[in-house]
């Protein structure tokens, strides 16, 4: 487990006092954390805690209303999402967003064509796309139209699309939601293989068993605030976290 020996690790991404308001609602409030190179960070919290908003802020779909985001020490402020993708920030969407009119292969090819290695020739991009489809186990369905895929396969496609841009920081938004136990185990193994390939990963997940297994560290959000940070064991026993999930004990 190369991911767990902290200490001399380099920081890939850092959030400093990041805040995002929507009118009167503070969706993300003064969140600060460091994400080390090669680390899998789990991001958990009740519904509406601001997890997806945080991913939107990192990928550039939203801009923070306060604070700073740094990728390799470089501020991301004002940088368009496509340029963050070129830097190596890839993401999946909780509500999967395949290109419905395109084949499964072409969906992934789009990611390869425009990812971290721009100016890739079409044939080369197709090869790369085929490789990632094979990697997520969709190799046999490459020529099917993307909207013909079922739920679990769409999750895999979403993953392959994000991988095709060869991200250095991969943001996974509930890639296990709606999967059964066997499928979850497969995806957990997949994510571990992605990390072993050198990718740093932030993963939002509700399936506690899976996230405990995957994460080197956990971040817990509640009402937009970071209420706990640490190893899975310590965080999941933290009274504040238990209260956030289960409510205050009566009496």
């Amino acid at each position: 487990m190369s991911g767990r020996d902290a200490g001399e690790r380099t920081v890939l991404f850092e959030a400093r006092h990041v805040t995002r308001r929507f009118g009167g609602l503070v969706a993300v409030s003064d969140v600060s954390y460091r994400h080390n190179q090669g680390e899998i960070l789990g991001l958990i919290g009740p519904n509406g805690a601001g997890k997806t908003t945080l991913i939107n802020l990192i990928s550039g779909t939203l801009e923070p209303t306060g604070g700073e985001l740094l990728f390799e020490g470089r501020p991301l402020k004002g940088m368009a999402p496509y340029r963050r993708a070129h830097l190596g920030i890839g993401r999946t969407f909780q509500l999967m967003k395949p290109f419905p009119g395109l084949s499964v292969l072409d969906n992934v090819t789009a990611g390869a064509l425009f990812g971290r290695q721009p100016e890739l020739a079409m044939a080369k991009a197709r090869d790369l796309a085929a490789h990632w489809l094979e990697f997520v186990g969709l190799g046999e369905k490459a020529s099917q139209p993307a909207d013909a895929l079922g739920g679990p396969d769409r999750k895999r496609l979403e993953l392959a699309k994000a991988l095709a841009l060869q991200p250095r920081l991969l943001l996974l938004d509930e890639v296990m939601a709606g999967l059964n136990a066997v499928e979850i185990d497969e995806v957990v193994a997949l994510i571990q293989r992605i990390r072993d390939g050198g990718t740093t990963i932030l993963v939002i997940e509700h399936v506690v068993k899976a996230i405990r297994k995957l994460s080197d560290r956990l971040l817990v959000l509640q009402y937009g605030q970071l209420i706990a940070e640490g190893t899975a064991e310590s965080v999941l026993e933290d009274p504040a976290v238990i209260e956030a999930y289960l409510g205050r004990r009566r009496g």
Binding site: A80, Y82, H86, G90, R91, L113
Partner: peptide, 27 residues
């Protein structure tokens, strides 16, 4: 229909927000 540029346009047509985070300079 065969170029990288055209591929980007099709991706924009199919789903613009997904296209942008995949590295396509949509604007």
């Amino acid at each position: 229909a065969r170029s990288r540029f055209g591929f980007g346009l099709i991706a924009i047509r199919e789903r613009e927000d997904a296209a942008e985070v995949m590295g396509i300079p949509t604007t």
